[in-house]
């Protein structure tokens, strides 16, 4: 263990540690606590400058109701789901295949293709922006959910392939060999052996990609224009412009936007962290 477990330290250290942890957590979360407090407040508190005191009214639900009634928030959320879920399914399905191909077959271009996927994944978005926007225009998919999903799937394939390939590579190769000797076809090896064994990796990738895509702002700005297809990140930004001073509604909207990835994170925490720390423990 590093550092030395606090239990082996003198009493005074143990007590101060137990005080220090919640205090530092509170300081760390001040920005988030601030926004939660504000989302409860009414307009009266905001104009009176009561930001940190006890809210004079508890209006969280009425603020949320206001947001839904007076803004297209509901349609933004639905769009976010319409963009995020197909992207997760598409990117994970495709990368199961590419990951399998790159992990279990030896051929000349293998490493080259693998490194191409990795390199592409790190490229700055701006170098893709104009051609991708043009391409989406030409396909008649500009300002549609489909156009955005297609791009997201393609781009996420880079990261997902890296992840899947390393995961499948770590599976014992004897499994595949034994199946081949038994005469199992390559497709059945994929469907009956690889896919069931990669379930943890599929779960980890799904939560990660869900969060990445849900939180995407740049591509939503570049490929979407109208409210009808706009996800919540871009929607919030447009509300931010409209409501310069209506902080209580803006913070209620922000909280609504944050809820799905936060739930996802807490439900699938282990998978989420396993996905993010890929390679942090091994070479």
């Amino acid at each position: 263990m590093f550092p030395i477990p606090i239990q082996k330290r003198p009493l005074i250290n143990r007590i101060s540690y137990k005080i220090l942890v919640p205090v530092s957590l509170f300081i760390w979360l001040i920005p988030l606590i601030g926004i939660m407090l504000t989302s409860i407040r009414g307009l009266g508190d905001i104009t009176a400058g009561n930001y940190w005191g006890i809210p004079s009214e508890f209006l969280l639900f009425s603020n949320i109701k206001d947001v839904f009634q007076n803004t297209p928030m509901l349609s933004y959320i639905i769009n976010s789901f319409k963009i995020t879920i197909p992207t997760v399914i598409g990117a994970v399905a495709i990368s199961c295949m590419t990951g399998f191909a790159l992990a279990s077959y030896k051929f000349k271009a293998n490493l080259f293709i693998f490194f191409t996927f990795i390199a592409g994944n790190f490229v700055p978005f701006q170098i893709l922006m104009i051609p991708v926007r043009d391409l989406t225009f030409q396909m008649g998919l500009y300002d549609t959910v489909t156009g955005l999903v297609l791009f997201h799937v393609a781009f996420q394939t880079g990261f997902c392939t890296l992840f899947m390939r390393n995961f499948i590579k770590a599976l014992p190769n004897e499994l595949f060999e034994a199946a081949r000797i038994d005469g199992t076809s390559e497709f059945n090896i994929f469907l009956k052996i690889v896919v069931p064994l990669t379930r943890p990796a599929i779960a980890a990738l799904s939560v990660l990609i869900f969060t990445f895509i849900w939180n995407d702002f740049f591509w939503a700005t570049v490929l979407i224009q109208g409210q009808h297809a706009m996800p919540i990140t871009a929607g919030l930004k447009s509300l931010n412009g409209q409501w310069v001073t209506v902080y209580h509604l803006l913070s209620a909207g922000s909280i609504i936007a944050a809820v799905p990835p936060v739930i996802m994170f807490f439900l699938m925490q282990k998978h989420f962290i396993a996905g993010l720390t890929l390679g942090a423990s091994k070479g």
Partner: peptide, 22 residues
């Protein structure tokens, strides 16, 4: 041939949306 069949959809999308745009 199998690896190429498995690579096809991912590689195609990646070439069209990431590599070619660069």
């Amino acid at each position: 041939l199998t690896p190429w069949i498995f690579l096809f959809p991912g590689l195609l999308l990646f070439l069209v949306y990431v590599i070619w745009p660069i």
